[in-house]
Amino acid sequence: MLVTYLRMSTALPAAHLLVFAREPELGRVKTRLAAGIGAEAALAVYRELLALTAAAVTAAQVPATVWLAEAPAGADPTQPRPEWPGLPWRVQPAAGSLGERMAQAFGQAFAAGASRVVIIGTDCPGLSAELLQQAFDQLLSHELVIGPADDGGYYLLGMNKLETELFANKDWSTATVLPDTLADAARLGLRVAQLPTLHDVDSAQDLARWRHPARGQ
């Protein structure tokens, strides 16, 4: 059963942002990073990434819904989460691949009346309000907008109608996600706008590169 603070039967504005996130709980976030720096340090980094993402979302002034990977223990479903002040939240389906969960979130936003929908995660410290606004602007003249990550994935995906094939047959969390998604878009004849390539933080090496970018050059 989905926990909801936002009544999805209520019509959404034309532009809507989806944020896939996790509750900041010790041992349950950034497991790859934790393998290199320890669980407590990884949790601190994740909290920092959440704060950066939330600030970008707030500054973009776009209606948004947070989709949490799991239901927070004891949370009041009518109240926003502390990390996401003012934002409604839902819980991702328990089963299915990442692609299936993203497709469901897109589908529900479109069904509720949105006509331009963008999804982001919380791994990209370079995400800004300006990039979010640019993504929605690009959807006025393109069917798809994508923010490439330099690890071969993407930090942002947006579309103006649900394209389920973009979420199928992907080896998620690998370097093939971006090229496979772009290949699908080309086969479907979609006009694609690409945002600047940014850096995700998933591992200790990624963290070092973020903290000391000059050393990673």
Rank of each mutant, 00 (worst) to 15 (best):
P148D: 03
T174R: 02
V145I: 13
F136V: 02
D150T: 10
A168T: 07
E163L: 09
P148K: 01
I146N: 00
L139F: 05
E143I: 11
M159I: 10
G153M: 10
A135E: 05
L131W: 06
A168L: 12
H142T: 10
P179T: 01
N160L: 01
Q138L: 11
G147P: 00
T174P: 00
L144V: 13
L156A: 11
F167V: 08
H142L: 11
E163Y: 15
H142F: 12
Y155R: 09
L131P: 00
M159F: 08
Q133T: 15
T174F: 01
D137C: 12
L157V: 14
D151L: 07
Q138C: 14
L131A: 10
A149L: 04
D171V: 10
A175N: 05
E165A: 13
E143P: 13
A135H: 04
N169V: 06
L140V: 12
H142E: 12
S141D: 14
L139H: 01
V145Q: 05
L139E: 01
W172C: 07
A175H: 09
L156R: 08
D137M: 12
A149M: 01
L144P: 02
T176W: 04
A149S: 15
G158N: 09
D137Y: 12
G153H: 07
Q133H: 10
A175Y: 05
Y155T: 07
T164P: 12
